[in-house]
Design a protein around this nucleic acid. Structure first.
Lengths: 218, 218
DNA sequence: TAATGTTTGTTAAACAATTCACGACATTAA
DNA sequence: TTAATGTCGTGAATTGTTTAACAAACATTA
């Protein structure tokens, strides 16, 4: 939507990672950092880091490196982390609970505002400081929520997806094994635990000794 | 390691996904499937599917499509799913519990054999049919386990990683926010929940209406 | 048996991402 | 001031991935 639309997707996926590690450096009181040091920390080639940063202009100084505070401030703005984005979580099972307890606020302003579940025993309680509503109230409560984390059982995935979209959600982080169908304009990122595990094992067996990263990745 | 070493990594990451959907088709009693149908189900371009399959030779028939049973058998062999790969899980918190309850056996032979935790209250119990041992017993119990799922707190990540590697683990699915350091020859796939969420939101804000996938994703 | 329609496998082109390698400048030390 | 060192930013080369498009092969129908 903004001026940074020409940034490669691969780069965009690494930005939150950079952000967190720069934040760590800042907390540690470090004043400057080189692409090489950062590379050791985040396990991304230093040339790739320099290239990634350069899409945003000249953030560093030759012969010096990057100023940690400046970099941090820049990333905060770039990742829109001053303006908190409301997120809802659907399905407070084991995985959903894990997510709610994960302290997203520690390093960034992405916040889960509310959660939904079908279990009456959970409704009305809080998990990780997030209130849980009944799934029937989805349409009533989902105001201004743009993104949703989907941690419901497989059988519910598509139905809930459609209700989310009708309520204005345009981004879904899908942890169910279903490959949900959505209209144009809705972004879905799939994270499939079984696939991740099988994929790791396949790589172990078929790709010899080499140091790689990621998963999602894809 | 094997004869399929020249298969693109992007393709390798999709194989488990294909496998599961082909299995679904088989259960539904479907006898044949075209790349187009499969494309609708898994949300991967049909040309990409044909290209992916073709790395393994001619699996389909022109004018007909792919025989579901044949495809399923082929993938089972290819993904080494006849020979179950032992996996251990470290850290039976919310996320770890979610993993143990996830029924990996349903569609494939990847099995979590054992889990470890530091909490004496959990040791000796079972979650999802998987026995939980004390973390002190890691070195004693980890025989023939090649892969580990790491769902421990951030502060423990690197220490546990080193113990795992000393015990012969060569693949780690890392759910902690730490970018762990490992020697050559050990494969690590990182899945960072905070990064995934932030990345989704960044894409929503900066990349206009288009239908994409993944997270790892690479 | 011939005509028609379907779908693969693959060639070539387009697109995307990574990595190399080096000029330019900053910093530090002498 | 000068020399030595460190580090960025980037053009070019490389590598990796996706997509379009189509001939060839097969299935189906009449």
């Amino acid at each position: 939507m903004s001026d940074q639309s020409k940034i490669p997707q691969a780069t965009a996926k690494r930005l939150p990672l950079y952000y967190r590690f720069i934040n760590n450096l800042h907390i540690q009181g470090k004043l400057r950092v080189s692409s090489k040091e950062l590379s050791d920390a985040v396990k991304v080639d230093s040339a790739t880091i320099r290239r990634d940063f350069s899409y945003f202009g000249a953030l560093g100084k030759k012969g010096y490196g990057y100023n940690v505070e400046y970099l941090l401030e820049f990333f905060r703005k770039t990742l829109d982390q001053d303006e908190s984005t409301p997120v809802a979580l659907i399905g407070v099972g084991n995985l959903g609970t894990a997510f709610l307890n994960y302290n997203f606020m520690k390093n960034n302003n992405t916040k889960i505002e509310m959660a939904f579940d079908a279990d009456a025993g959970k409704v009305g309680t809080e998990v990780g400081g997030v209130p849980i509503y009944h799934i029937d109230q989805l349409e009533d409560k989902l105001h201004d929520v743009g993104a949703a984390i989907l941690t419901v059982p497989l059988s519910e995935a598509q139905t809930i997806t459609e209700r989310l979209i009708d309520s204005g959600v345009t981004g879904i982080l899908n942890f169910t094994p279903a490959r949900i169908t959505v209209p144009e304009g809705v972004r879905v990122h799939h994270i499939d635990l079984a696939v991740e595990l099988q994929s790791l094992i396949y790589f172990m067996k078929h790709y010899p000794l080499d140091n790689e990263d990621d998963a999602e990745e894809e």
